[in-house]
Deep mutational scan, measured.
Amino acid sequence: KFGRVHERAEGPAKILAIGTATPFHWVDQSSYPDYYFRVTNSDHLVDLKEKFRRICNRTMISKRHMFLTEEILQKNPNLCSHNEPSFDVRQDILVSEIPKLGKEAVLMAIDEWAQPKSKITHLVFCTRSGVDMPGADYQLIKLLGLSPSVQRVMMYQQGCFAGGTMLRLAKDLAENNKGARVLVVCAESSAIGFRGPSEDHPDNLIAQALFGDGAAALIIGSDPKMGLERPIFEIVTTAQTFVPNGDCHLALHLREMGLTFHCTKDVPPTIAKNVESCLIKAFEPLGISDWNSIFWILHPGGNAIVDQVESTLGLEPNKLQATRNILREYGNLSSACVLFILDEIRKKSGREGLKTSGDGLDLGVLLSFGPGLTIETVVLR
């Protein structure tokens, strides 16, 4: 008597548009150690500064975009301390800036989509910054002038794996609601975790050397309108798992001094060791076991992770080039990073006149991972 209210779509979910945005301000990685130790009044920690310089040199990052300028840091000195309470200051900045950054990426996506924004039916927003109620999803709806009846899902504090999570959720929403057009937004800022150095917490140096700011937005829907919408990728399958006891290797915690970062040297080999089982589960039903026969979007948690995944799986050097390019130009953008790589690989395919948006290949994989050593596996066509 009370059956399904919403009719299912006929076809699989497809990515119809991609937009990205970054803050205008950026830092050069080669000179960042001098800048970082100067603005945090830590130049007296000579040995720690040299250690940080070595870490920065190993990241293979060229530059990173950041909202925090020297002027902002001078006005808010607690942000430059390692342990002073600064959460309220971070909140005041990020509750406002995260939706604005997301808006810039959304406008780029809508411009490519070339359809009225009134056709957006759902919003899925993800960030690890600016936790608030009502959330960044609500603020973004107002900034864009979208209908208050847009169906919203707000996900805070997920971390680097969440780019894949957003695709998984959007696929379910698009395929189970005929005519749905799902706006996916990942907006991230390193301002939540920026803090001064400490000899007692070397993990913090890794975070300060890796993370950048950026937002990515996608429009996802099934059954694209012929002649009006141009699909870029099809989302074939999605899956999530985590490595048992992985939280002892990688975890982040909200504290009075901001978001703290805990990471062990076992993260790269542990991820590399567990990736292939995810690939087998995803691609065995499709008859694929040659990992060089697919295109790759791999989250660059750090250069060591990229190198070890490449080595463990025997990947050809060009397979992870898009990942390395984004890491070099932006650093680790947390949940937004794989979506930047997705954009990079389709643009490169277009520039080179390849037959598909995925490096000329039919199928590919998007792998994202993060806290708890959670792994998201997304098969794309």
Rank of each mutant, 00 (worst) to 15 (best):
R4K: 15
R4E: 13
V5D: 09
V5W: 04
H6S: 10
H6E: 11
R8E: 06
R8M: 08
G11T: 05
G11V: 01
G11A: 06
P12K: 09
K14D: 08
I15E: 00
L16C: 01
L16P: 01
A17D: 06
A17M: 05
I18F: 07
I18R: 03
G19D: 02
G19N: 03
T20R: 05
T20K: 04
T22G: 06
H25E: 07
W26R: 10
D28V: 03
S30K: 10
S31W: 05
S31Y: 11
S31P: 04
Y32H: 11
Y36D: 01
R38E: 01
V39T: 09
N41I: 12
S42A: 09
S42N: 06
S42C: 13
S42G: 13
D43V: 03
H44V: 05
L45W: 06
D47C: 10
D47A: 08
D47S: 04
D47R: 08
D47T: 11
K49S: 02
K49I: 04
K49D: 08
K51S: 05
F52Q: 08
F52G: 04
R53L: 01
R54H: 09
R54D: 03
R54A: 13
I55T: 12
N57L: 00
T59L: 11
M60A: 12
I61L: 11
I61R: 06
I61G: 10
S62V: 11
K63S: 13
K63M: 04
H65I: 00
H65V: 06
M66V: 06
I72E: 00
K75E: 12
P77W: 00
P77R: 05
S81Q: 12
N83M: 13
S86R: 13
S86C: 08
F87I: 12
F87R: 13
D88P: 08
D88Y: 12
D88C: 11
R90M: 08
R90A: 02
D92F: 02
D92R: 09
D92T: 07
D92C: 04
P99W: 14
P99C: 15
P99R: 10
K100S: 11
G102N: 00
V106H: 06
L107A: 12
M108W: 01
A109T: 11
I110N: 05
I110R: 05
D111L: 04
E112K: 04
W113P: 06
W113V: 04
W113G: 01
A114Y: 00
Q115V: 08
Q115W: 03
P116M: 07
K117N: 08
T121E: 02
T121W: 03
H122A: 02
L123K: 01
R128G: 04
S129K: 11
S129I: 02
V131L: 13
V131W: 12
V131D: 11
D132G: 08
M133A: 03
P134K: 04
D137Y: 05
D137K: 12
D137S: 15
Q139C: 05
L140N: 00
I141G: 04
I141E: 05
I141M: 11
K142C: 00
L143Y: 04
L144K: 01
S147A: 03
P148V: 04
P148A: 12
L228C: 14
L228K: 08
L228H: 09
P231L: 02
P231A: 09
P231S: 14
P231H: 10
I232Y: 01
I232T: 03
F233D: 05
E234L: 02
E234T: 12
V236D: 10
T237M: 07
T237H: 05
T237L: 00
T238E: 08
T238N: 03
A239D: 11
A239E: 14
Q240L: 09
Q240G: 01
Q240F: 02
T241C: 09
F242Y: 13
F242H: 13
V243H: 13
P244S: 10
P244R: 10
H249E: 09
A251T: 10
L252I: 02
L254M: 02
R255L: 07
M257C: 09
G258E: 13
G258R: 04
G258L: 13
F261S: 15
H262S: 09
H262D: 15
H262L: 02
C263N: 15
C263T: 15
T264N: 13
D266K: 00
D266N: 06
P268W: 15
P269F: 06
T270G: 11
T270D: 15
I271H: 04
A272W: 13
N274C: 14
N274W: 12
V275I: 13
E276S: 12
S277M: 07
S277N: 15
L279W: 03
K281M: 07
A282C: 09
F283G: 05
F283R: 01
P285L: 08
P285D: 04
P285G: 12
G287I: 00
I288D: 00
I288G: 04
I288E: 01
S289C: 11
S289W: 05
N292F: 01
F295P: 15
F295S: 03
W296N: 00
I297Y: 13
I297C: 15
L298F: 07
L298Y: 13
L298N: 11
P300V: 01
P300M: 06
G301K: 14
G301E: 15
G301Q: 06
G301R: 07
G302T: 15
N303T: 06
N303I: 08
A304G: 13
A304L: 04
I305W: 06
I305A: 12
D307L: 00
V309P: 03
T312S: 09
T312R: 09
L313D: 13
L315H: 03
E316P: 03
E316F: 15
P317C: 05
P317K: 14
P317L: 03
N318K: 12
N318V: 07
N318I: 08
N318C: 09
N318H: 00
K319N: 05
K319C: 02
Q321T: 06
Q321H: 09
R324A: 03
N325R: 11
I326K: 07
L327P: 04
L327K: 03
L327C: 11
L327T: 04
R328G: 07
E329D: 10
E329F: 00
Y330T: 12
G331T: 00
N332T: 14
S335V: 03
S335M: 00
S335D: 13
A336T: 07
A336V: 03
C337Q: 14
V338T: 09
V338R: 12
V338K: 13
F340I: 07
I341C: 12
L342K: 15
E344T: 02
I345V: 10
I345R: 03
R346T: 02
R346E: 02
K347Q: 10
K348C: 06
K348S: 00
G350L: 13
R351V: 04
R351K: 07
R351H: 00
E352K: 12
G353R: 13
G353A: 12
L354V: 04
L354R: 02
K355F: 01
K355C: 03
S357A: 03
D359M: 09
G360K: 05
L363R: 14
G364M: 02
V365H: 14
L367V: 02
L367Y: 14
L367Q: 14
S368D: 15
S368H: 13
S368N: 12
F369P: 15
L373R: 15
L373P: 15
T374S: 13
T374N: 14
E376Y: 00
T377A: 01
V378T: 15
V378R: 15
L380G: 15
R381E: 07
R381W: 00
R381K: 13
